[in-house]
Design a binder for these strands. Structure first.
Lengths: 228, 228
DNA sequence: TATCTTATAGTAAATTTGACTACAAGGTAG
DNA sequence: CTACCTTGTAGTCAAATTTACTATAAGATA
């Protein structure tokens, strides 16, 4: 058995952290502070150790490079084109998460010189096969958003129906009808009314709602499936 | 750079080949002919070489162990619990495919003593984390079958609507209404009539249809999504 | 107070779904 | 040859859902 703390040199992790701000989708990138691609912006990534699980490695690496911790990372898939990495054969396992950027303070560390949010439609040229990974992750994300209630991760705890609608309009890239969107959501019995209204808006205040995973799980058990 | 033909010793591939026969879902397993789990039935798997892509490795391994070749394998995801493999740390990448068993002649080879189809509901106790991989693959498969037109892989080129319906009834584990099922499929404009009828049946012969991926792709471009 | 913006209710046609009925087209058994 | 199986295929009808709207309410601002 190899030493526990040694890295598995053919296996890396890359993280795709998506955020939603000002009706736009962002992705978290880090600037390499050393190594062959010094100065370049890339997906936060690193090596897996013999002694740690993959999920664990993803969390550790993300935290070390960007300061972002305590988020739920999910595996996307492995990428392993023979020539994807310049100096040796490396297969990477991509993880993704959806977060609210304002919840996190970025703090570049370890081999990262800087960490920053970029609009997904306006990222610098990424190294290796990162462009392809990003593209596939976006595809997957769009699909997943329509079939699972994960979009709520991108909104504040309490949100209005219009905020939710705008999120979906931005992600699906099309306009939706307000009354119909509202009715559809309400009929799902998924949203919990907070019995509160918006404040600080210069127009009629909208009701606030929150998403409750427990309720969703209960509905899902009975065969309900979220579709938008 | 390591020698091209050397294996990456922390990385393996496992294949989940599903077949459909007699209204039941089968999975292809191999019996280990050597090594620490000699005699046991397990998912066909092996090591990735430095010089080959992952998909390529999956095809090579499947062919060597079972004789099955020329099938479209798709990656499921990577599995990497620290203790999943007894003697060293191994992360495995799971691939799956859907095929018609009658199209293939099994031919055990390489480290496999035997290769055989098992009903998914009646597999022997599998080694390592293979039970967990199989479980997740089945979940994934069921979901995918309802949202993408991959079930056609399991039928002959030309099939009747009832055959298709029975496939879905078996996979989704519920009865469907014949006229309604038929109408739904026909309204998709997805199936191409072969202008032919069944032969050798002791009752009224049904029309034969075929699935055309090109038509599906065209529909998909226009925003159509397959749902069943 | 008029007017602007956004919230929310409602409505009516079109489409889709679900549960059924009816009949057609062959085969098979008597 | 005929009655009667079995399966294929068409059609009906009510219920539910979706889509495209209209209308009105509630505040905020000029």
């Amino acid at each position: 058995m190899k030493k526990a703390n040694t890295i598995i040199d053919a296996l890396s992790i890359d993280c795709l952290i998506f955020g939603f701000k000002n009706s736009e989708l962002d992705i978290l990138l880090v600037q390499h502070g050393e190594g062959i691609s010094k100065g370049k912006w890339a997906l936060p990534g690193g090596w897996i150790k013999y002694s740690e699980g993959m999920d664990e490695a993803a969390s550790r690496i993300l935290k070390a490079l960007t300061g972002v911790s305590n988020i739920y990372l999910e595996q996307l898939r492995a990428f392993g084109r023979v020539d994807r990495y310049p100096t040796k054969r490396v297969i990477t396992i991509a993880y993704y998460a959806l977060v609210k950027p304002e919840d996190y303070t970025l703090q570049a560390g370890f081999t990262a010189a800087d960490a920053k949010w970029f609009k997904v439609n306006d990222v610098p040229l990424l190294p290796y096969d990162h462009p392809s990974i990003l593209k596939q992750a976006l595809e997957y994300l769009k699909h997943k958003l329509r079939h699972e209630p994960i979009g709520f991760n991108l909104l504040p705890k309490k949100f209005t129906l219009l905020q939710l609608q705008e999120l979906y309009e931005a992600l699906l890239n099309k306009k939706l009808d307000k009354p119909n969107f509202r009715r559809k959501l309400m009929n799902m019995n998924l949203l919990v009314p907070c019995q509160e209204k918006q404040t600080d808006v210069s127009h009629r205040a909208a009701s606030l709602y929150r998403f409750d995973k427990k309720i969703y799980d209960k509905l899902a058990e009975r065969g309900f499936t979220f579709e938008l």
